[in-house]
Simulated assay, not measured.
Amino acid sequence: MKVEEAITQRHSTRAFTDQKISEDQIRKIISLAQLAPSWVNSQPAHVYAATGTTLELIRQRQANAVRTGAASKTEVPTVSRSSFPKEKQDNMAKWYASIPDAIGSEWQKYNNDAALKLYNAQLILYLTLPKNHAEWSMFDLGLFADNILLAAKEQGLDSMTAYYLVMYPQILRETLPISKNERIIVGIALGYKQDDATINGITSEREPVDDVLTVVK
């Protein structure tokens, strides 16, 4: 698979099959992710790969937390959508408006049901950074994460990054050996896409290139 194919074919997948992912696949994906650029070679990222019984425990505990209305708070602060510039809010609104046309009026129920099951992912990668990390480290982690998405796609795997995956950091800390000196940044769900799942019909458009590119000669 060419890089362009991996980029254009990758999209957020919200329903995966039960097919397992081998440890060899995990190691290959992370080894490729490690080739991302890193400020002064600091290589700040650490990855906790949850699969098997450990992932099922996280899935069950988080579902219980959601059902009981437990408050959630990620370790990376979120901001209100209303705080974004108007043109970015317009992007969000356009996307939300397109979903019912794609998968029907009950899309929110489909989405909530899928999220409650952590999208039936067979592997979730939790990415951390050292606490008090340099601001550049967040950029490094973004590059590292994108390499994960593309390397996974090259292996026939699809992916989902979501707030939902890290909304209960205490559950993750009680289940995974995450050091108190690390900060949980993002989760990436991986698996084989369930082709007949309605929820996987959600897609999004990107702004015209001319809206994001300024060429100065």
Rank of each mutant, 00 (worst) to 15 (best):
E106Y: 05
A115N: 01
K94S: 15
R67D: 15
I21P: 00
V212D: 07
P169Q: 03
K20P: 12
D18F: 08
A65C: 08
Q194G: 00
I29G: 03
A33D: 10
A71W: 07
A36T: 04
E174C: 07
S83R: 07
N200M: 11
L176Q: 09
P130Q: 03
P37C: 14
P77C: 12
K28N: 10
M167R: 13
T214L: 07
D196V: 01
T13E: 05
I26T: 04
T74V: 05
Y168Q: 08
V209H: 03
Y96P: 01
K28A: 14
P100G: 01
K117L: 10
A15I: 04
D210L: 09
Q194S: 06
T214E: 11
A115Y: 00
L176V: 07
L123I: 09
Q155E: 15
P100F: 06
T8D: 01
P208D: 12
N111V: 04
A151Y: 07
E205A: 14
K20W: 02
K88G: 02
A145M: 13
T214H: 14
K117G: 01
M167C: 09
A162I: 01
D24Y: 03
P169M: 10
E87L: 14
K217P: 09
E5P: 08
I29W: 06
A197W: 05
Q108L: 06
W39P: 04
L213M: 10
V3T: 15
Y168G: 06
L35Y: 12
A97G: 08
M92W: 15
L172F: 03
R183F: 09
E23M: 03
T161E: 12
M1A: 09
S105T: 13
R14T: 04
I178L: 05
Y168T: 13
Q108S: 05
T53M: 06
L172K: 09
P44E: 05
Q60I: 06
H11V: 08
L176A: 11
I148C: 07
V66Q: 01
I30G: 02
A102T: 12
Q43R: 15
P208L: 04
K180R: 14
S82V: 02
P77A: 04
N200Y: 07
T74W: 10
A65I: 06
I29N: 00
V66D: 12
T8E: 11
A49R: 11
I29D: 00
I199G: 00
E87H: 15
A97R: 09
W95D: 10
L55E: 09
P208Q: 03
I199L: 06
R183N: 14
S38F: 08
A6W: 00
Y48D: 06
A151T: 05
S31F: 01
